[in-house]
Design a binder for these strands. Structure first.
Lengths: 222, 222
DNA sequence: ACATTATTCCATCAAATGATGGAAAGAGCG
DNA sequence: CGCTCTTTCCATCATTTGATGGAATAATGT
């Protein structure tokens, strides 16, 4: 059995895929409730009922969008991992920040959707996506913050979340933030990379030797 | 002339204030479109038309909420600044992270609203809030990242944004993130502080002497 | 007590929105 | 061609949602 999502991914010119692509953008831009099926249909240039024919109710389309975005994001992370494999932690982070930042600025709806899913509840409660924890553990492992893919210490997971969220925030908030910098997009992207490296790299460079996980376990902090 | 918002802030028991308080929570939780005037009214325990009587249309109430939240946030930042004034940058950040994290976890709707405003567009376009740039410049100045309050270098502004967004993200995303850690709230809060300090402090400690603004100006990066 | 004003709720609208039935148009196939 | 299956659109619903008019109730001032 092939799911509608798999069909869409197989044939990017199909109506299903075209709808999915626009839905990604609209849902990412306006959030679940801010996006209407009519907006999406109009964007594709089709009647609203055609959209329902292919994807069923709004919540189902949204679910497909979330899964689709997660699929792409995971694929990119795997690609990055294969590129930086074997480098020092400093270089790894430098390259990873470069690639992921470029990628997410090219597909800002990914960051938008990830963050909106974190931060905004939806009236019609939908499934919680459990692929986030996997992501996070895998990245933590490949950064050398944990010795085993399973059983990654909580502080390591949190550090990965902090990194990912920092990038997503600058991508997703670009309209808002750029309004206070008054600079073209490419300069903003450079500034984002520069800032991310400035903030993120030192933390992992100096403390690396003093025991990957650093400091006390969460319980008895301070 | 006193605005409705000022009236509400003056008398916290007034109907205006009670509505505003609930509106903060609901708008923060569900976003602008996800929140309905009926949800807010029901939360307060009043009829929907009473809400309209006090605050006019939905967009006006939302605007009041945003201004209200910004007011509180700014006040807290000023308070923190007065507390950490004169300390070393390291201590300043340590204390500031402690206080701001505690504060925002006590008022998570502040983080929610700030982030949703950054990341989600609203169909009915509303005023863009220009108090953000001020915030950011002031913090950057008080962190010693700029010599004058006016004319703060862009990299410094970006660093402040990164810091603020990191805190907001962990507060706003707590429901989502805690589901992957399986720990009580207070432990999660500790872990957040620990992670924020781990990531944020090293960047500012070592490079402090090598020229506050660090590295090249945005233009010719890399 | 009375007049005036402020506040609250009930009833109701109009528009927006999610969703569907069924007719038309198209595609594949003997 | 004639048949079936798929796809698309038009018309239409039922709900939800933002919003208001007006009656009823409570405050306030004189």
């Amino acid at each position: 059995m092939t799911s509608p999502l798999e069909k869409a991914r197989k044939d990017p010119d199909s109506m299903k895929a075209r709808i999915l692509a626009k839905a990604r953008r609209i849902f990412g831009e306006y959030g679940y409730h801010g996006a209407t099926t009519r907006m999406i249909a109009e964007e594709v240039g089709i009647d609203i009922s055609t959209l329902y024919y292919h994807w069923g109710e709004k919540g189902d389309l949204y679910e497909a969008v979330v899964l689709d975005v997660n699929h792409d994001l995971r694929a990119k992370l795997v690609e990055v991992e294969s590129i930086v494999h074997g480098m020092s932690l400093g270089s790894r982070m430098d390259i990873a920040i470069e690639i992921m930042t470029d990628y997410l600025f090219e597909h800002p709806e990914i960051s938008n959707l990830v963050l909106l899913r974190y931060f905004a509840k939806t009236r019609d409660e939908k499934l919680i996506d459990f692929s986030v924890p996997e992501f996070v553990s895998e990245i933590a492992y490949s950064m050398g913050l944990a010795r085993h893919k399973k059983n990654v210490p909580n502080p390591a997971k949190m550090q990965v979340l902090a990194i990912m969220n920092s990038i997503h925030s600058f991508v997703s908030g670009q309209d808002f933030f750029r309004s206070m910098f008054d600079m073209p997009q490419d300069q903003y992207v450079s500034l984002v990379k520069q800032t991310l490296k400035f903030i993120l790299i030192p933390a992992f460079n100096e403390k690396t030797q003093s025991g990957g996980t650093h400091g006390p376990q969460p319980g008895e902090h301070r």
